[in-house]
Design a protein around this nucleic acid. Structure first.
Lengths: 190, 190
DNA sequence: AGCATTCGTTCACTAAAGTTAAGATATGGT
DNA sequence: ACCATATCTTAACTTTAGTGAACGAATGCT
């Protein structure tokens, strides 16, 4: 697991053994069983999560039912907006599978970044990259119909279709489970 | 204009006069007339834009018609995904109004950040903030109907309704101009 | 194994958005 | 002021999504 993290960081900056040891001393690694709710609505946190193995999912509870907005799998990072704005969380995060995460918070980030300023550089590069990715996702979502969005997902993240229950995929696509089921049978007919 | 920029930066880090002068020496400020296309599809750039005054808009050209995905107004920043991935742009950016921007690129960022490492900190904080904002926007978009999205926009960015032609707003909301017109008259009736 | 719950599909019906077209206004350029 | 173009609205029709309900299959629990 540690190596997975170091390999990921190596894409942005190179670490000395000293620096690696500082990271290891932070007790970043955490395991959760499938179904564990990591963050609840209304709860405050300034944690950031980085998925080493498994899958986590963010969802809102609106009118009594869940609205899934994102899935995070291997090598993807999630800092809940509430951690930035320092307000109670608007949504839940739970583990779709047995999952291993790193969990860090703003204080840890500040500490590491002040010891090793190049971490700021990595954070900046990684943030910019995530921002660009998310922008593209959002744009694609806006400019497509539900059917196109499903086909797009089929192409870009076929693993999700295997890992995720269909009703969660549906709300991720911005539609109801019934619509997704219909849409799928429509596609098969073609 | 310069003061607007410095005030904005001051929200994240404090600048010495020396540092301000370095920024001023970079020739960041640019004016454009309404309608000017700043970035074209297929074009490569690694520019980032920050709106000091006016409004710019990003849009795709799909099947011959424009699909607006975002508006950026005062104190909002845009780094096109193509500037991160170093690929040709998938979309256009144009000025909705007479607009004053700062334009910077990756080289300038690297140079300033290496001279004054605290810029990395500002970039990191600002990126994280934008990421959180965009995430919330995306989530709201996914979990709402077109009508709710319109009402939401009315609350959160009423200025846009004044500044932006309706057919551009429609595609920003992910619907056709006809649907927006219909939806509006539906709301008035209630 | 038995039971309850969750999940996916189907159906009938309703509501809303897409599409095509037409007409009315507004806008910009010369 | 004039014309061409862009913009907004309305309407009729088609397609698709939302809703509520029913059913069977799969899943999880004890």
């Amino acid at each position: 697991m540690q190596q997975l993290l170091f390999d990921f960081i190596a894409k942005y900056i190179s670490l000395t053994d000293d620096e690696k040891n500082v990271l290891l001393s932070l007790n970043l690694f955490h395991s959760f069983r499938k179904g564990t709710v990591i963050l609840k609505e209304g709860q405050k946190t300034n944690n950031s999560y980085f998925v080493l193995k498994g899958c986590i999912r963010s969802y809102y509870l609106l009118d009594g039912d869940e609205r899934t907005t994102a899935f995070y799998t291997e090598m993807e990072a999630l800092t809940p907006p509430c951690a930035i704005t320092n307000t109670p969380s608007e949504y839940f995060i739970s583990c779709l599978e047995d999952t291993i995460l790193t969990i860090s918070n703003a204080d840890m980030t500040e500490e590491v970044n002040s010891k090793f300023p190049k971490f700021d550089i990595m954070c900046r590069l990684f943030s910019a990259e995530m921002l660009a990715k998310q922008r593209i996702d959002f744009d694609e979502f806006k400019t497509s119909s539900p059917e196109q969005r499903y086909l797009n997902l089929l192409q870009k993240r076929p693993d999700l279709l295997q890992r995720v229950p269909q009703h969660q995929l549906a709300s991720y696509l911005g539609i109801t489970p019934q619509s997704l089921s219909r849409l799928r049978s429509r596609i098969v007919k073609k």
